[in-house]
Simulated scan of single mutants.
Amino acid sequence: MPTIVFEASALGPAVTAEAGAGRLIDVCDDARASIVFSCRDARCATCRVEIVEGEQLLDPPARGELELLERLGAPPRLRLACQAVLRAGPGLVRLRAVTGPEG
């Protein structure tokens, strides 16, 4: 079971959670992490997160997520929390909320 660390940001304090396999946005909800989101289906990009550590514990981006991130010119370390899927197994994933237009 991965440990997910949401780093402190302008939106709120750091939060740590244990998570099973599944969508990262569900972990955000359960842990009450300060990640902003709206649509939950790769349309708005408000839930962008920077993967600081543990990228190997996430499935590669699916087509919809990848297309939106490419349109935004986002660097490879950015993902959409509503689309990123955690893999089962031990490890650490550290995330940072992206709160502005920069990536």
Rank of each mutant, 00 (worst) to 15 (best):
V93Y: 01
R32Y: 05
G20R: 07
I4C: 10
P2Q: 05
A19T: 14
E102N: 07
S38M: 04
R43I: 01
V49Q: 00
A84K: 00
T16M: 09
I35E: 00
C47F: 11
E55N: 11
V27L: 11
C28P: 03
L92W: 08
P61V: 08
E53H: 13
G100F: 09
L68P: 03
E53I: 02
A19V: 05
P13I: 10
V5H: 06
G100T: 13
V52F: 14
R32V: 08
L66H: 10
G91K: 11
P90G: 14
L80D: 00
L92Y: 06
L78Q: 15
R96D: 10
A97D: 04
T16H: 06
V27A: 12
I35Q: 09
G91T: 12
A81H: 00
D29Q: 14
A8Q: 06
E102D: 10
A19M: 07
D59W: 05
A45Y: 02
P101D: 13
Q83N: 07
E50W: 01
E102S: 11
E53Y: 03
A42C: 15
P75S: 13
P75K: 15
P2Y: 00
R63W: 15
G22C: 12
A88P: 07
V5C: 05
D30Y: 03
R32G: 15
F6I: 01
A17D: 11
G89W: 13
A74C: 14
P60R: 10
A88N: 14
A45K: 00
R79C: 08
L68A: 06
G22R: 05
C28N: 01
M1H: 04
L69P: 00
L58Y: 02
R32C: 14
A31D: 07
A8N: 08
A45G: 05
R43G: 08
A19C: 09
I4R: 06
D29N: 13
G89N: 00
V49T: 10
G20A: 15
L86K: 07
L66S: 09
P76E: 11
C44L: 07
R77E: 12
G64T: 07
E7A: 12
C28S: 13
E67M: 15
I51Y: 12
T16Y: 05
I35M: 09
G89Q: 09
E53M: 10
R87T: 08
L58P: 03
L58N: 13
I35Y: 00
R77W: 04
F37V: 13
E50C: 09
A42Y: 05
Q83Y: 02
M1C: 13
E53P: 01
C82M: 15
L57I: 08
V93T: 02
E18K: 09
S34I: 03
R23F: 14
I51L: 09
E65K: 14
R40C: 08
V15A: 07
G54M: 01
G20I: 08
L57E: 00
A42E: 02
E18W: 07
L58D: 06
D59N: 06
G103R: 10
G64F: 05
V5L: 13
